[in-house]
Design a protein around this nucleic acid. Sequence first.
DNA 1: TGTGGAATGGAATTAATATTTCATAGCCTG
DNA 2: CAGGCTATGAAATATTAATTCCATTCCACA
Lengths: 273, 273
Amino acid sequence: MNPRLPQDYESLRNLVLEKRSALPKRIAQIAAYALDNPDEIAFGTAASIAASAGVQPSTLIRFAQFLGFDGFTSLQSVFRERLRERTVSYEDRLKALRGGGVTQNRTILDGFVESATRSLEAVSRALDDGLLDRAVEVLARAETIYLVARRRSYPITSYMAYALGKLKIRYTLVESAAGLDPEIMSFATPKDAVVAISFSPYASQTVDYARLLSDQGVPVVAITDSAFSPLAQSAKVWFEVAEADCAGFRSLSATMALAMTLAVATAERRNGT
Amino acid sequence: MNPRLPQDYESLRNLVLEKRSALPKRIAQIAAYALDNPDEIAFGTAASIAASAGVQPSTLIRFAQFLGFDGFTSLQSVFRERLRERTVSYEDRLKALRGGGVTQNRTILDGFVESATRSLEAVSRALDDGLLDRAVEVLARAETIYLVARRRSYPITSYMAYALGKLKIRYTLVESAAGLDPEIMSFATPKDAVVAISFSPYASQTVDYARLLSDQGVPVVAITDSAFSPLAQSAKVWFEVAEADCAGFRSLSATMALAMTLAVATAERRNGT
DNA sequence: TGTGGAATGGAATTAATATTTCATAGCCTG
DNA sequence: CAGGCTATGAAATATTAATTCCATTCCACA
């Protein structure tokens, strides 16, 4: 038997990465698929894996042989071993975690993961369906959607902008650095709509812009963190999202999920699905 | 299909325990074996399992049919699912949340919440502590941190920029619309560091910039989604983050958590806490 | 102790899955 | 641009594994 033949997933992975540049196109395709979806390899059949990776079954066998295995079956067994062992190591990890054997950086990561998870749970539990429907209604009617947010909330609108573009929904991101925002907003009419996002301490610009647009008769959908938020006052529909925080930085996960929901739901609403 | 047919390992286990006393001798034997060695059932073949449990293959089939499955194969798939889903908890949570009678928009929201939760769980499980430590080490040493990302990944760097500013860590967001990026990057030296983020399909600019900076000797910390990502090649340290997607839009939650961890951990590292 | 019915073992059958083969397409090199 | 080589796709084949079937055994009850 070939002594270089990898017996465990880690060394197999390294072997693949090492040979990466020397792989033919289709083999590289299945290699990437394998490392990205190891569970699929462990359980699937040659045919099913090949289909979902978009190659022929024979390519899978060639991939295995390329690495020195004598066929798909023996390659697959490495992926299966990995799952068996993971059961153990995962439990070990948890044990270690309880024992306090974790690094400081890991603790920070876990903190962010936990606050994000908590926020997501909260938004899913607390969000009112009727509110969501009304907001989508407003956005679906709009000719152009104006996106207003600063500072912490800005990443949300920038991802919304990306999504709206993909969904072919016309939008304007109010973010000009050159002080031209007032002009841009002056184009907005009651036939458009605004998504304004701001959390305490409220960026004054966002609040001002939302009020300005609202006074122009443009309907505002706001996402904020409290009923007392100044944003709530100028909004036609507003959502209260409570984000947990970690190390002084609030998670954006829940707001992000809500924002993306608004984008996708608006698109679906328009397409009449 | 039989409605009592157990879909997951837990209910299958309960079903077996419940029927325990009514089982014929050989069936009982294989039942006990199955609950004691679930991994064997998941991976073995009917023949191999039968042999190590000391029964005939046909007994295995009878056991499966006794429980209402139509054959060994469908029984086995329950045992396989169990291994895939070390991430059971989030599904339970969501199942509990869905009380039925949900609107379409609510379904979209739940989809985003679910994919975000799944991504977070995956990153927490899969991320290697050593890798994290090394990345933080690199960033902590840097005089200026350059942030490079486009399109989908851009919101991540924009939140990182916000956080780094708050933490008083010097950074430069490479995002100039005026085509001045090359000049900005030419200021970077090996004493600085880069955080580059890109997911498939990789924005070519991000990849090019990362390579350019790496060639200048600036250490690159990359966040990407596959070992085959072109970003991985120019990176000194790189993270693989698998984000689940919903309606064609990938969650950013896991990447966001990791990015914030890098920011905060770097600050703590510098402050010597 | 004989008889009927369920349980079991083992081999035959059928289904599935992996592997091989071969024809063709793409690509580099002279 | 030709010739040879490698890579790829598709289908045929071989292998392996699941399922079925039938003969036999075991056990309860008369």
